[in-house]
Computed example of a mutant assay.
Amino acid sequence: MKSPIPSSTPTVINSAHEAPQVSAHFSCYNQAEIYGTSKVVKAPWQSFGLAVFAGAFIALAFVFYLTVTTGAGDAPWGLVRLVGGIAFSLGLILVVVCGGELFTSSVLSTVAWAQKHVSGAELLKCWCRVYAGNFVGAILMVCLITAAGMYELDGGHWGLNALKVAQHKLHHSWIQAFSLGILCNMLVCLGVWMTFASRDVLTKSLLLILPVAMFVSSGFEHSIANLFMVPMGMMIQSIASPEFFASLGVTQEQFADLTVTNFIFNNLIPVTLGNIVGGGVIVGLGYWWVEQGKTTSSDPHKAHHEHFSAPHSHTEKPQHASEIKLTKHS
């Protein structure tokens, strides 16, 4: 049986933030356990509310991406994508710093499930309410961005950029979309995992930029970002005037494949499953498996110290979610 965290080093999960406050002496893996448990045991109403914020944050980041990549002209393709990726990193930074529940990072709660701190049913309920909250936040932003008429920026080229990005996401094969989802959430969850190494907000923000910039610039697929981007394309395709399309030299029919059915079956399902595998299985359970191998070695305490440079007394884990102290955000 695992020993609870010693009282001399209390663990406090700030329920309003993406990352829990933990002792600097805990290893990244131990912090991932606490982080994952905090997601599942959080009050459902609070979890859903923070998920709405996270969905909106990711949508705003995609707006930033579209703005900086519109009208790039003859600029090098890779550099344009890099700038867009750096702009998009704003989304995950807002989630971590301002507080939010994002589905793609919440799948790291597989670590808490593997350690038997939470049940499988609790885990799935958490994922479902966070996904639903992210959807609500993303759709709210679709409505606001449309009402603001942003698709008409730069003579309509902003809207054309959005249409092309949304349509491109529907043209992947199922296995391609699934694979791109895996690659994307490996980077998202590795970025979040790196933030466990620091308690400094600025450092956490900087650590998130390159993983996010890489997955965006490389065209990897993020399910929650797609909950904004594809509906945004569908909205523009359905409400923009014939003059809008004519001025851009395209027709409305060119984007007729932007439909709910195509979105759900050709993109959202495979990408969501890929995100779960990439973040929850490869990163979360992958590190859990490595950790189990370390604890069965001939000198586990020495191995733990060499890898994390943390005192032995701070590496013990809680028995169950109930042993973790929850506090309301002040």
Rank of each mutant, 00 (worst) to 15 (best):
L140F: 11
A121Y: 11
V192T: 05
V136E: 00
L190V: 13
S217P: 03
F228G: 05
A148V: 01
T195V: 12
D200W: 01
M229L: 14
C189H: 05
M194A: 14
K164F: 04
C126L: 07
H157P: 00
G191C: 04
W174T: 02
N185T: 04
I139T: 10
L153I: 07
T146Y: 13
W193F: 14
H222A: 08
A213S: 12
N185G: 04
E152A: 13
M150Q: 13
F220R: 00
L144D: 03
T195G: 08
L140T: 04
V130Q: 01
H172A: 03
M194N: 12
H222R: 08
I139A: 09
L163W: 00
I209F: 01
V201A: 14
S205G: 15
R129H: 00
F178T: 06
S179F: 10
S119H: 08
G181E: 04
P211V: 09
C126P: 03
V130R: 05
T146I: 11
L208S: 09
V212Q: 08
I139D: 02
D154Q: 15
C143F: 11
C143W: 11
S205R: 06
M229G: 04
N134L: 02
L206G: 08
V165Y: 10
A166V: 07
V130E: 01
L144K: 06
A225P: 06
A132Y: 02
V130G: 01
V136I: 09
I175F: 15
F178Y: 13
R199V: 14
M150A: 12
A177D: 05
F215A: 08
L202A: 15
V118K: 09
I182Q: 05
Q176E: 15
H172F: 10
C143L: 13
M194I: 10
D154T: 12
A147N: 10
K125T: 10
I182L: 09
V216L: 05
G155L: 08
L180Q: 12
A148P: 04
S179Q: 09
